[in-house]
Design a binder for these strands. Structure first.
Lengths: 141, 141
DNA sequence: CTGAGATTCATGCGTTTGCATCTACCTTAA
DNA sequence: TTAAGGTAGATGCAAACGCATGAATCTCAG
């Protein structure tokens, strides 16, 4: 077992433990964590996001994301509009209601995250962000 | 946005990117990654594992895990047997076939993991393992 | 300009998931 | 001993998922 494999296993385990903890928190209203993740990702982008771009951020298959967006549009939280430059494409943005809900849930969730990571020193937080940032960048073409 | 939140977001992103990469690798045979995860977790334990214990490691609801184990038992990869000390309980172990398949898939997957984490220095690998280990331990209460 | 191939997103369909709930068993206290 | 409450895992059911595929659009070599 290499160091790399040990590190990855440890990362997976931490992810599972924390996700379960967050999921158990009673802050999600009638959204799932996955739905919140979509709203959150959209909230960080000022310009409307392409489906394919969004799909890169979210751990969902393309069809599953397509349908989740359907539902979010039906619920009035997300807006689909045509991409001007590519008529196959779709651009997504939050509606005011969607932005509102994202913020409402984001606040207490952010507190949970802060609490869960409070076992780390500021230095460790910085290292963690740097290392995972490096990993995410790896997205082979 | 606190440092903790940035670090968590970065971790989530790295996890999503790497999981997608691994999932795209053609090494899974007719198992899903989640099923492999169960086999892998069982392979690491010499003594049969309790359902609830297994559930702690895997990012699945209890009913979903219960049914996945059903399927793995049907396919002859996992063995269910009664816990001698607690007649509600179940103990799980790999069958020889299950162990064989886990190894067969584990080999190339481990190489993928090593390759994906090869962008990190040995020091970074050690830091990552230490930090995520600390986080996983957090399992409140 | 055109046709072959790639890309973007949607849809059909069988499988898997989560929530709520159930049964069976264990634990504790009176 | 027994009744109340807790815990382990299974099951019904609607919702969501992934795979394969489809339709529309873009790209580019010839």
């Amino acid at each position: 077992m290499t160091r790399a494999n040990e590190a990855w296993e440890s990362l997976m385990r931490a992810y599972a433990v924390l996700m379960k903890q967050f999921n158990a928190e009673d802050v999600w209203g009638d959204l799932t964590m996955r739905e919140y993740d979509v709203l959150y990702t959209l909230s960080k982008c000022d310009s409307p996001l392409r489906m394919s771009e969004l799909n890169r951020h979210v751990l969902l298959s393309q069809p599953a994301l397509s349908r989740m967006v359907d539902r979010l549009v039906d619920r009035g939280l997300v807006e689909r509009c045509q991409d001007p430059g590519d008529r196959r494409g779709v651009r997504l943005s939050l509606t005011p209601a969607g932005r509102e809900i994202q913020r409402e849930i984001g606040r207490p969730h952010a507190r949970s995250v802060t609490r869960a990571l409070s076992v780390l020193t500021p230095e460790e937080l910085a290292q963690l962000a740097a290392i995972t940032g490096k990993l995410a960048q790896n997205e082979e073409k």
